[in-house]
Simulated assay, not measured.
Amino acid sequence: MVIPPLLLQFLVSLTAILALYGLARMLGFGSKPKLVDEASVRFKAGEVEDGFVAERIAISKPGDTALARDANAQIMVIKRHGNRFAGRILSDQTLVREEVDAIIVDCGDTQFGSVRLSLDQPSIWVDAINRL
């Protein structure tokens, strides 16, 4: 049986692509990071703002956003941005509105955008943000 050269080249290329895809998935490339616990939120908050030590934390149900408050009553919103996390310290210019099971936080930075957080007790955080 003679295999045409173009078909052989296609099959070898397809095998190589699938092997590279499998290797990338095995190494965790392309996966979406999550905020799984308070320690991960503290770590990300410290990366965003040097010296920020979160004392109270709320992680959204999907694990892609969080709120953190420090001892100085500063509140930081953290969201996934690609395969990393970005955050902003909220100010008195921050707009927040409550929905049935979530809050929408708009920190006023157009590049950061607004953040939807699906929290267990959203009204506590709405009050805290409004007091800024």
Rank of each mutant, 00 (worst) to 15 (best):
A102W: 01
P122C: 14
G87W: 10
N130M: 06
R25E: 04
P33I: 10
S60Q: 08
T94L: 11
L90D: 11
L117P: 12
A58N: 09
I57D: 09
D37W: 01
A128M: 13
P62M: 07
E49S: 01
R56E: 15
R97I: 03
I89L: 15
K61W: 01
V126R: 15
M76R: 10
N72S: 13
D37G: 05
A71W: 03
L132I: 12
D101A: 14
V96Q: 12
S91A: 13
V48E: 00
E99F: 00
S118Q: 06
A54K: 08
L119D: 01
I78Q: 07
I78M: 09
L132W: 06
Q111M: 02
A71D: 11
I57G: 07
I129A: 11
I129N: 13
I124D: 15
D127I: 04
K79M: 07
L35D: 13
G28N: 02
G46E: 06
R116H: 08
C107I: 12
I75G: 10
D50L: 03
S60V: 05
G46K: 02
D101M: 11
T65M: 03
S40G: 07
S60P: 07
V96F: 11
M76E: 09
R80W: 05
S40E: 14
K61C: 00
I59Q: 03
V36T: 11
A45W: 05
L27R: 12
A24P: 03
R84K: 10
K44Y: 04
L67N: 09
R116V: 13
L23K: 10
K79A: 07
K34M: 01
D70P: 10
A86S: 13
A58Q: 02
L23A: 11
G113I: 08
L90C: 12
A54I: 03
D106N: 15
A68N: 06
R84V: 02
K61E: 05
A86L: 05
G30H: 05
A24G: 11
T65P: 00
K44H: 04
T94N: 10
R97M: 02
D101T: 15
A73W: 06
I124C: 09
G82D: 06
K61G: 04
A54L: 07
Q121C: 13
D92Q: 14
V115H: 07
T94M: 12
P122S: 14
A102T: 05
L35A: 07
P62S: 14
A39T: 11
Q121R: 14
N83T: 07
D37E: 00
S31P: 01
R25G: 01
G22Y: 00
E99P: 01
K44A: 02
D92V: 03
D50N: 08
K44F: 02
A19W: 03
D127Q: 14
K44Q: 11
V126K: 15
